[in-house]
Amino acid sequence: MAGNNPNLKPMNLTLKVWRQKNNKAAGALETYKAENISPEMSFLEMLDVVNENLAHKGVDPIAFDHDCREGICGMCSLYINGRAHGPEQGTTTCQLHMRKFNDGDTIVIEPWRANAFPIHKDLSVDRSAFDRIQQAGGYVSVNTGGVPDANAIPIPKSIADKAFDAATCIGCGACVAACKNASAMLFVSAKVSQFAMLPQGKVEAKTRAENMVAQMDIEGFGACSNIGACAAECPVGISLENIAILNREYLGAKLTSQNV
């Protein structure tokens, strides 16, 4: 290690972390020290260090969600210093590095706040509402038969790219967390428009839009005020254009589908 590089000096931080035993218990912000933190650690690794120290002291470690730790699974969450996934744009919390903070900083860490995402424990929230929305129509039914040739269905590159961009949504819920209305519209719009643009998805497009929006409303997410905080905080840059597409799909489906 280049010892005299100030950017690589270990940091000492003060954390204010939301602790809550379970969904029923009352929670509160607790203060912890994070000492000797390498700037090269990810935010989650920093929490691992803190948790190890807490465990040594016999304190219940801080519960937080994580899995791949490389920005692809969507499990990590955390509202860090007032921002979903922390201050950086286009990153998940596992991709956020401690060098983005300064020695001596106080960092406030809270769970995603939305009634549709009840708290499991501490910073870990239940995002199964997203699963239920997916199950309501976020798929393409494939009937059995021979495998078609990959080039049998022509799709213009521009459309394929747009559908792919929408498909990059990792279901993390940062859009809901950042939205003043706790609206899930960016997530649902990505899931709906991803299929609506492709010939394979068009077959079930109307029922999909109707059912996924109905489930979204049942789960208790807010409505979209076109504030745009979701897209600004989305780690993969899902665009607001998808919400316009969802609105078109939904209204068109409602006016013309056979479902009454």
């Binding site: 204010k16 509202y79 007032g82 921002r83 809270e110 706040r113 807010g222």
Partner: peptide, 14 residues
């Protein structure tokens, strides 16, 4: 849709 708010929130950033 959000009965418990954030202790620290910076909506002005987004």
């Amino acid at each position: 849709a959000r009965s418990v708010g954030y202790a620290m929130n910076r909506p002005q950033d987004n």
